[in-house]
Design a protein around this nucleic acid. Structure first.
Lengths: 212, 212
DNA sequence: AGGATACTGTGAAAACATTCACAATCATCA
DNA sequence: TGATGATTGTGAATGTTTTCACAGTATCCT
């Protein structure tokens, strides 16, 4: 099985390849791409190998072709429909974020329990009352969801989502959630991330006068 | 040097230890803690070893004592002051998020270029015009910043932050930023995260009728 | 007190990820 | 056409992280 690390990097390569495309670059070498990503060229080549891609040698990779290859490897054919729970500041930010990027991912439904927030369409995404969650997920065959509700509600919402048939979850709530087997969950722990930054910053820039 | 993975897990352990504390549990074994974190007990023990902690054996770790140890290892004594750039939906969400958690991290200043958003105090955090960024960072001796501005502005803002003396950065913009040497940056790439969820979800739950 | 029990701390093994290093390939140009 | 040079694909080496497995140790119970 392919590693998470490799998938992450493929997603990154795609980002930079799109930039190259905009700059009208039509071929990139593994080393050029690696440079942009702060990585090693051998790593790039191996990642592409992992997904079974063979570039034509000597002139580097054809940007468009490689983009297409990564797309057909990473993306769900026909697009991935995503449900979003929580239309607070974070939820709205996520909508802007995801709907902005012309990507395979499409947030097709958002849920909240506050009636003031539902019934509208935000960035092309319909907002429903949370009570509709089972119905909408079933009707649309949605498999992936994002949680952006306050911590205390996260577990309950997650349980409902999985009961409704969701298989993959991206969780922005401050609390990790327990999930059923045979599902995939990614916890975006922003506190952890900031603590990490704080810690490693201190490692490189210790307090004035402190020893190395 | 200690690994990023270990720091991430220590931060997680702390989260669960606080839960145990609330539940009036006063001792936990490495295996109990590991279970909560979906990890291995040996991993927990090794992580604690890495940070030089020695529990008293046979009754597990004293929850309060271990919390204190992790705190004094991870946290900057006196608290880490953090600057936030971008007071849009995401910025406000992050303020709620970080100011809510009773943590060592304190967002002491937020910046935006929209005059409608500045001059206020949100969740105890003063909002300034972006033009004040150098002044405020210097005055307060802030070392860590969070970027929550739109993609196209991210690099420019990052440059200003580092020029102003920031050493560590948590970047929520959709674009990675280039940073000076001797600094630490963490890119929270939400698109990547969601693509990853989409991909691995498909690995475990392929389309109806597809082969395993 | 002494034996049984439950746990830690850690060396060593295994698994996993990255990097090296080089043969193979192919555009390009004299 | 054949030599040149850039670049790939990948086996092997290296480096890192996780897991195993067990000696050592404190507590509890009788």
């Amino acid at each position: 099985m392919i590693s998470e690390k490799t998938i992450e990097r493929l997603s990154q390569y795609r980002h930079f390849l799109r930039e190259f495309l905009k700059e009208n670059v039509d071929h990139v070498s593994s080393s050029t791409l690696a440079e942009r990503c702060h990585g090693q060229s051998a790593q790039v080549r191996r990642d592409l190998m992992e997904m079974g891609y063979r570039g034509k040698s000597t002139r580097g990779y054809d940007v468009e072709d490689l983009l297409a290859a990564i797309g057909s490897y990473l993306d769900r054919p026909g697009g991935e429909k995503v449900a979003l729970c929580g239309i607070g500041n974070l939820g709205r930010a996520l909508l802007t974020y995801f709907q902005g990027s012309l990507s395979n991912l499409q947030v097709v439904a958002a849920f909240d329990r506050d009636p003031h927030k539902t019934g509208r369409v935000i960035h092309g995404c319909r907002c429903f009352d949370i009570e509709m969650v089972e119905k909408v997920i079933a009707e649309q065959g949605i498999q992936v969801a994002v949680i952006a509700v306050p911590g205390p509600d996260a577990q309950r919402v997650a349980d409902r989502l999985f009961a409704a048939g969701i298989k993959g979850l991206l969780n922005f709530a401050p609390t990790p959630v327990r999930v059923p087997p045979k599902t995939y969950v990614e916890h975006m722990d922003m506190t952890m991330a900031l603590e990490k930054v704080s810690f490693f910053t201190r490692q490189l820039a210790p307090a004035r006068g402190a020893p190395k």
